[in-house]
Simulated scan of single mutants.
Amino acid sequence: MKSYDFEYDGLCLSDMGYIICRFDAESSQTVSNGSQITFNTTSTLNGSKYEQTSSEYGECLETTIQICKNPCLGDDMEIPFKELRDLMSWLNRKEFHKLKFLDGDYLDLYFEASFNVSRIELNGKVYGLELAVTTNRPFALREPRQIIVKNLIKNGKKTIHDISDEEGFIYPETEITINEAGTLSIYNAIEDRTMVIKNCIVGEVIKLDYPVISSSISTHHIENDFNWVFFRIANTFKYKKNDLTISLPCTIKLKYSPIVKMSF
């Protein structure tokens, strides 16, 4: 990745008068693309074959980058003590925050990260910082995607596509506005999976944010009418379509961040 700027927790590195740089580094390097999978196996046939028992991501994305003052803004490249404190306060946080690298291919991607910071000194003066980036996932995320599904008839058929790079499923933030009273069921053929909510009321707004469900109607004890099978979208390598059958007329708003198997 080639980038000179990043945005962290809503503030850009360039806003602070700094750029991404490299101190005395070679021009080429081998970089992991993230999503490193650990395959757990067990021996069979006297060790002539190993059967896969499970697999998992063994680590979150990590990298190291260096920054310095933007030389286009002046000749004095030394980082003063106050600016160093400001940078530490911004970057060295106990919680993960949204990190975006402002490079063309990465503009729609983000990570959740924090930094450990080391000084790069010359003759006791600070001229750069080395940032050890730690994230909370083994891959990047795409900026949240919103899908609106309007079902106007009973048992209407709708299709949506999951654009994640990762096979499997994601629980999207889901908001359902009911347009006809009754039992709402949403069947997703890709997983042969059905979510059911009974006793729905016209105008009721139901929100699902796994593992929480709520209703805009205080008298509807939705926890008793829910089968606790949360709606989710899924994909395989070859098949991305989620073919839905929706029992009641309603409007469904979905929001999720697709997985992107890229590193820094």
Rank of each mutant, 00 (worst) to 15 (best):
L102A: 07
N123D: 14
S114F: 09
L131C: 03
Y110C: 10
G124Q: 07
R119Q: 12
G124A: 12
D105H: 10
N123H: 05
S118C: 05
F115K: 01
Y110N: 10
K94D: 11
V117G: 03
D105V: 07
N116C: 12
F96K: 06
K125D: 10
L109T: 13
F115T: 00
V133T: 01
R119A: 10
R119D: 06
L131H: 04
A132H: 14
K100V: 15
F96R: 03
L102V: 10
L102H: 08
L122K: 15
R119Y: 08
N116F: 12
E95Q: 12
Y106G: 06
L107S: 07
L129K: 03
G124E: 05
K100T: 15
S118P: 07
K94I: 00
H97N: 10
F101K: 01
R119T: 07
R119L: 15
G124V: 14
L109W: 14
D108F: 01
Y106I: 11
R119K: 13
L122G: 07
V126N: 00
L131P: 04
K94L: 00
G104E: 14
H97W: 06
K98A: 04
E95D: 14
S118W: 12
Y127M: 02
E112P: 02
L99V: 06
S114C: 11
K94H: 09
D105K: 12
D108Q: 11
H97Y: 13
S114P: 00
L131E: 02
L122Y: 13
E130L: 03
L109A: 04
G128H: 05
Y127D: 03
A132M: 07
E121R: 08
K94S: 08
L99D: 07
K98R: 13
A132N: 14
L129A: 02
K98Y: 02
F101T: 05
D108V: 01
L122A: 08
L122I: 01
K98Q: 13
F111E: 12
G128L: 05
A132K: 14
E95G: 02
L107A: 07
L107P: 00
V133H: 01
V133R: 01
R119M: 11
N116V: 06
Y106Q: 14
Y110P: 15
S118I: 03
R119I: 04
N123R: 09
F101E: 09
G104K: 11
G104I: 13
Y110R: 05
D108P: 00
F96A: 05
F111Y: 15
L107R: 03
G128V: 13
V133S: 02
V133D: 02
Y106L: 12
K94C: 00
N116Y: 11
F96Q: 06
G128C: 06
K98G: 04
D105E: 14
E112A: 02
L122S: 15
L131S: 03
D103R: 10
S118L: 08
F101Y: 15
S114D: 06
G128Q: 04
E112N: 13
E121T: 06
G124C: 11
D105I: 09
K125Y: 04
L131Y: 05
N116M: 10
F96W: 08
Y127G: 02
I120Q: 04
Y110M: 10
K125P: 08
K98T: 09
E121S: 08
D108G: 03
